[in-house]
Design a protein around this nucleic acid. Structure first.
Length: 576
DNA sequence: TAATAGACTTAGAATGATATAA
DNA sequence: TTATATCATTCTAAGTCTATTA
């Protein structure tokens, strides 16, 4: 499908290339041309498609009853009624009464510590092992069949891959960080919960035998195919298309074009907010300082959140007094602000940054007479900030700064860092540039469980290679000595081949050392998120072309599919 | 104006597949 | 051939931002 979609796209010739059009994303004439104005219609009235057909979702497999010989003990006593949902309920039952235990069980089971899940845990482990050892073909064939049947849809003449066509199975809710709803039972989704979205003239997907959809609608102002309401937060979940699809790719492209427009006016915006630090109005000063943080530190906007519903995390506008500390002087630097707070996914943001004196004074002012849990920016929220940004540039919102700063940083770092005469060295340079962005955006990961061990393994490989190099050098030396004495062709040739051997081993050693450096520097940093969501892929494609690096070295298959538009568009001289 | 609903992007961890070492 | 390491894919939570409603 990606190939055919691309080919079709290329076959459509487009005469009026303007800001919103590119041969890769041609306007599709879907039949409702009015006075030859279908292009405008498509982009101004929010229509996302004219035709949409799909097979609906794949439901979670039914519960498999646990065999009765697998027992669950409470306080040493065997409880016989121990179906899957009871096990789940036990975990949440201690904090939540709306569970599925009988009142008898609820009265009895009060202490998680007295629960003995050993046998059940072992049973599940065995099950998982059994699944693993299931013959490869069986698994693949089965998956492939489901994928072929449910994994694609037709949207406006293109067969597109669906991202998440399987409904989330029931289970324990696993929130991130200190989540108040951790462990609650996420209930099973049935056909009666499902809203189907498709076009009127398409074949409506059949619900499973004996069931009905909650609703079938035909809303072409949205991109989702299926939705349902989840019971933990009461929010809506969607089935949507894969990143390789036209509808996602075009949006992605637009995102980077918006960021590039910001590049053109960012100097003006910076001058403006610096000026606003002096404003008579508190709300304007707060807005200006917050925007400075968003720009300089790539902080997220920071919407308000309902207390008690989610983990306590913040972004820029929702920072509280307790999240920053001010140091008039710190380690030889003036006006240092220390940030320490939990951001998205409860990932800690810790940073000490020197700021302009005016910012520092403003922060002192904002913090005056406040408690630690008061809002730092009490006259500001994301809606106020974004309204202001919208006035500065069409389509500008807080998150555009993250995209802009990430991409411009990659471009500038690539310029600065690209060194080395071989491909591995250049790729290390690329990874370092990528890493600079990941650090800016605070993309962290837990160090892999096997990190220490794999580092040790690599180190012993390096040691072995060093020994090998020493041997090779020794052999070269003796070959040279030999050649000096003998002075014949054969010994000269031997010297040459030993020289080559040394060179080869040196190269191998260097490669390993580069690998070790790269891995060590990457221990707690996640590169994937910025690569996938923040870095204009055309920068990377251009870099590959410029330095003769195969794009496969930077983007794997999935990523190349997602960024097909960029691979198609960018030449070696592309400038973000 | 503020709260809420809705739609869509961004996020790290878990899981699965594949490559590599033993 | 098997065990382990690495890489890719899947999963779904958690954000942002806009539209709608009160």
């Amino acid at each position: 499908y990606p190939v055919s979609s691309k080919l079709v796209s290329r076959l459509v010739s487009l005469s009026t290339a303007n800001f919103n059009t590119h041969p890769f994303f041609p306007q599709i004439d879907c039949g409702s041309r009015v006075n030859g104005k279908w292009e405008e219609e498509r982009y101004t009235d929010g229509v996302k498609w004219k035709f949409l057909e799909h097979k609906g979702p794949v439901f979670a497999p039914p519960y498999e009853p646990i065999p009765s010989n697998v027992k669950f003990y409470y306080d040493g006593e065997t409880l016989h009624r121990c179906a899957y949902h009871v096990r789940l309920s036990v975990c949440q039952g201690l904090s939540d009464n709306t569970n599925e235990m009988t009142s008898e069980e609820r009265a009895k089971i009060t202490d998680l510590k007295k629960c003995d899940f050993t046998e059940m845990s072992e049973y599940f482990k065995a099950q998982s092992e059994a699944r693993k050892s299931m013959s490869k073909e069986d698994k693949q064939v089965k998956n492939e069949r489901i994928l072929q049947e449910y994994g694609f849809c037709i949207m406006d003449n293109h067969k597109e891959r669906i991202a998440n066509f399987r409904i989330e199975p029931p289970g324990l809710f696993r929130g991130r960080g200190d989540h108040p709803k951790m462990g609650m039972l996420k209930r099973r989704i049935r056909p009666e919960d499902i809203i189907i979205n498709c076009s009127k003239d398409s074949k409506v997907p059949e619900p499973p035998r004996g069931t009905k959809w909650k609703e079938v609608r035909h809303d072409n102002k949205v991109t989702w195919l299926v939705s349902w309401t989840e019971n933990i937060q009461g929010s809506i979940k969607y089935i949507m298309l894969n990143p390789s699809s036209r509808i996602k790719g075009e949006k992605d492209w637009q995102k980077y074009e918006t960021a590039r427009r910001l590049k053109k006016c960012v100097d003006h915006i910076r001058a403006q907010y610096r000026d606003d630090w002096k404003s008579k109005e508190m709300r304007i000063r707060q807005r200006a300082v917050a925007l400075y943080f968003i720009d300089k530190l790539a902080l997220r906007a920071g919407n308000e959140k309902e207390e008690g519903e989610t983990a306590d995390t913040v972004g820029c506008c929702s920072l509280r007094v307790e999240h920053i500390k001010l140091y008039p002087e710190n380690e030889g630097q003036e006006y240092v602000v220390e940030f320490d707070f939990l951001g998205k996914d409860s990932i800690r943001y810790y940073n000490k940054v020197p700021v302009e004196k005016r910012v520092f004074k403003n922060l002192q002012l904002f913090m005056e007479n406040k408690e630690p849990d008061d809002d730092l920016f009490d006259r500001l929220n994301t809606s106020i900030l974004n309204k202001h940004l919208q006035e500065l540039m069409d389509g500008l919102t807080a998150k555009v700064f993250r995209t802009y700063n990430a991409s411009i940083t990659l471009q500038q770092q690539l310029k600065e860092l690209t060194t080395g005469d071989n491909i591995p060295a250049k790729i290390l340079s690329y990874n370092r540039a990528n890493r600079a962005v990941a650090i800016l955006c605070n993309h962290q990961r837990a160090p892999p469980k096997t990190f220490e061990k794999s580092m040790q393994n690599l180190q012993s490989k390096i040691d072995a290679k060093r020994d090998q190099l020493a041997d090779a050098k020794r052999e070269l030396k003796s070959a040279k000595a030999d050649a000096k004495v003998r002075k014949d062709e054969k010994s000269k040739k031997a010297v040459e081949s030993k020289k080559k051997a040394v060179q080869r081993v040196e190269e191998q050693l260097m490669k390993l050392e580069v690998q070790a450096t790269d891995r060590e520097e990457n221990k707690q940093i996640a590169l994937g998120t910025s690569k996938l969501n923040y870095l204009d892929p055309r920068i990377s494609v251009a870099w590959c072309k410029k330095w003769g690096i195969p794009v496969e070295k930077i983007y794997n298959k999935t990523q190349r599919e997602k960024f097909a538009w960029a691979i198609d568009m960018a030449d070696d001289d592309y400038e973000f």
